[in-house]
Amino acid sequence: MASSLNGKVALITGAASGIGRATAVKLSKLGCALALTDVVEAGLSETAELCYTEKVIVAQLDVSNAEQCDLVVKETVEYFKRLDHVFNCAGINPTAYPILELPEGYFDKLVAVNLKGTYNVTRSTLSHLKEHADCSFVNVSSILGQRPSKEMAAYCATKYAIIGFSKSMALELGPKGIRVNIVAPGFIDTPTNASVKAGPEAVERSAQSVSLGRLGQAEEVANAVAFLMGDEAKYINGSVVEINGGLAY
Rank of each mutant, 00 (worst) to 15 (best):
L50R: 10
N88M: 05
S141A: 14
L115Q: 09
E41A: 15
E201V: 09
E232S: 12
S45K: 15
T47N: 02
R214F: 02
L171W: 13
L212V: 11
C156W: 02
V180L: 09
Y160G: 04
A184R: 02
C51P: 01
Q208N: 15
A170W: 08
A35I: 14
G145Q: 04
L11C: 05
G117F: 02
F187E: 10
T190Y: 13
L100Y: 09
A96W: 15
K55S: 12
L27P: 00
N65T: 05
K176E: 09
V138C: 03
F87D: 00
L34G: 03
D108T: 11
L36P: 07
G145R: 04
L126S: 10
H85I: 06
K130T: 14
A15I: 01
A59E: 10
H132T: 02
M1N: 10
K130A: 12
L30S: 03
S211M: 14
L110E: 09
E54S: 15
E49D: 15
Q146E: 15
V221F: 01
E219L: 05
A90L: 01
S195V: 08
G216W: 09
M1H: 10
T47E: 01
G91T: 01
V180G: 07
N181M: 04
N65S: 12
H128E: 09
G105A: 11
S149F: 14
A194H: 07
A96Q: 13
V241D: 00
Q68S: 14
S149K: 12
V73I: 15
G245D: 07
A233W: 03
F87C: 05
P148A: 10
V241A: 06
I19F: 01
V63G: 03
E49P: 09
L100M: 15
I178F: 00
V73E: 00
V121C: 02
S211N: 11
L44D: 00
R21M: 09
S45C: 12
V241P: 00
T125Y: 02
L44N: 00
N237P: 06
N93P: 04
D84P: 01
V63R: 01
G7V: 05
I182W: 00
